[in-house]
Design a protein around this nucleic acid. Sequence first.
DNA 1: ATACCGACCTGTCAGC
DNA 2: TGCTGACAGGTCGGTA
Length: 271
Amino acid sequence: MPELPEVETVANGVHERIHGSRVEQAWFGSKPEPFKTPPAEMAAAITGATIDRVHRVGKHIVFDLTPAPPASGSLQWIVHLGMTGRLLVSTPDTPVPAHTHALLTLDSGRELRFVDARRFGRLALQRTAFTGPGAEPLTISADDFVALFRGRKLAIKSALLNQRLLHGVGNIYADESLFRAGIRPTHIAGRLSRPRLQRLHTELRAVLRNAIALGGSSVSDYVDADGVRGFFQLEHRVYQRGGQPCLVCGTAIRRTVLGGRSTHWCPRCQS
DNA sequence: ATACCGACCTGTCAGC
DNA sequence: TGCTGACAGGTCGGTA
């Protein structure tokens, strides 16, 4: 479900509500799919730990933990929401939703719940500082951004979605940033001129920052840590607007499939 | 190394 | 009303 702005919104919301809390109990469901680390190992490491900070790296939510004594050393809990994952801070009297795969009981009296119907999300322990698979879109320099695509023979949209190049960009913000930069999604990444890539760098960061300010995009079931929807979907100019008139030139927005993902673009504004 | 495709899951919605 | 098929914000592993 979530791309960089949604993950950032969730991570910040969870941080505000639970940082400084101690985990009294950690429960993990038995279905193996959402766990990169075995559930018993995660429960043992997390129980008694203090949550110092919750932040975002790429599309991952990172919990910085201080382990319960006598354990020591660096410990992080990594949550990836996949397509439909939710991380909710609730009171114990709130009914536990279906498809809840993890539930942490905190000393503040609240609970942190990981809910994921489709089970594309992942939970894991990390013992060394997590840096993510690629570069960070909000802080990468224009020069480094341009260099990412040099010599690449795939479509620029596919390159934007490759998390090993740039982590955090998904289908919505790939389409929206390419529209705002006037670049057709099928354009071969390595053939784009430096000025056009610099424009994309500028527009991508702007659209991500704008979306963060609005709490992310709620296309179907995305909600933040309190279960509240975001508002950036009201700002989408091409995403899920196939067949509707372009807001700039009036031409019908096209919907095609690129790399197996639905792709939305204006045939007149994007060359 | 790079690029492409199907698989992984469940829920929802449009169409018949 | 109920069935079927298409589609969904993401990643991963196999193949060329």
